[in-house]
Nucleic acid binder design. Structure first.
Lengths: 231, 231
DNA sequence: CCAAAAGTGTTCTCCATACACCCATGC
DNA sequence: GCATGGGTGTATGGAGAACACTTTTGG
């Protein structure tokens, strides 16, 4: 039995919003387009879905082929299909977002891109298509998700970190300042999802800070019984 | 400037998961397919996206053309693109979910459907494609969303309702029993999102119950300052 | 000794949770 | 009068929010 469908079809693309963090704050990965439309503009990495390709695979492929970023964690965000969003015609974009440890990944331009760079989320250039909207939706989702699935945050942290670094990351994502004592109490006493190590930072300006690790086992236990949110 | 793209494209469909409630509990709307593949099976209402049609419009059109349900609130759920999910080939499904007041809407079969009916979510037949998975994802989303966006629930309630009806709806959606006193305290004292009327039910078995309305203004005020969840 | 950052406790308020009895109505 | 469902209050515990000073180190 073969049933076919032979009408004109919309094209389907995947677009990816990849966030990273460094000491300047939260950043988003953009590439400078090589081809029309919008050649020369900074835009989200993405591309057309190939025949018989799964969406998740298409997103990873598009990202790695254009920016050399591989093996990163992506999650589907939303599917955009507004009329007029793409001058080439009827193009539906399945958007993904993800997080990487910026220092672990050297990005460089590849197929279809003149250049690749990280932009602070509060200092993005004007983006083509509806990409600005997509970034906004991704940011909103990231902010929401962080409060009820804090494990996400640790995707961005090195394996060992200080509590101040962790707090700064939360502040970068949420865009607000947090109280140091309350933050530490939540991590150490309430949630207990970080574990002390014996190590400390070296060569810092102030006193050395203790290094912690993410306690995945404690996290899973906590996740089963639900979270209490807000800072 | 015209840029085209001329490779084989996946087909794009929209599928809708519509929830309703009656005294038997939470239900989902299914239709009995008329055409191959899976002719005769109960499945989610849906259909192919037309040329230059927006996704939201396609979902509403597919739903109304097959079930005569119109003007309902739909929200995008997730986009499914797993290999092998459709025997016709590479078909991507953008899924939507929505809520209706079951008693307000008489559904009846139309184009492409032999029959249309409401099924209790815990008594669904075996569904074709990956529709069972889609219903599961929709249910999970509905359950999550109810706790942080309670206004959703009132989409399913009549304009005037008793607190017991409201509580039963929450219980149907969440699949758990709730404490009557705590529930009422939350609605009336903590959230204050329902307003008393002077009316009462008539002809009931026990004593008449007071009727309440949803207080949209109070809700918006509360929504701005964030919620506290859980019952 | 000074600048910089690390680290630490307490109080108050609000909400979640647990729990049981009396009352109004229709039949 | 009885079955059915409506309606009500309190005590406890846990977490969020607000808030400031001392200590350690390198230069």
């Amino acid at each position: 039995m073969s049933v076919t469908y032979d009408f004109p079809r919309p094209a389907v693309t995947v677009d990816t919003v990849v966030f990273g963090v460094d000491d300047e704050g939260l950043k988003v990965l953009l590439l400078q387009r090589d081809a029309e439309p919008f050649a020369g503009w900074w835009a989200l990495p993405g591309g057309f879905v190939h025949e018989h390709e799964e969406l998740d695979d298409a997103a990873l492929r598009a990202l790695s082929s254009k920016t050399r970023l591989t093996r990163i964690y992506l999650e589907q965000l939303y599917t955009f299909g507004e009329r007029g969003r793409d001058p080439r015609g009827h193009v539906i974009a399945v958007a993904y977002y993800g997080l990487v440890r910026l220092r672990d990944h050297r990005v460089r331009a590849a197929t279809g891109a003149r250049d690749v760079a990280w932009f602070r989320v509060d200092q993005q250039p004007k983006l083509p298509f509806d990409h600005s909207r997509i970034v906004d939706v991704a940011l909103e989702r990231l902010r929401g998700k962080v409060t009820y699935q804090p494990s996400l945050v640790f995707e961005l942290m090195p394996p060992k970190f200080t509590l101040t670094q962790l707090q700064q990351l939360y502040e970068a994502i949420l865009g607000t300042a947090l109280d140091k004592r309350n933050f530490r109490k939540k991590m150490l006493t309430v949630w207990k999802i970080v574990a002390e190590t014996d190590e400390r930072t070296e060569g810092t300006v102030g006193p050395p800070a203790r290094l912690y690790t993410f306690d995945a086992a404690a996290y899973r236990k906590l996740a089963r019984s639900g979270f209490q949110f807000q800072f």
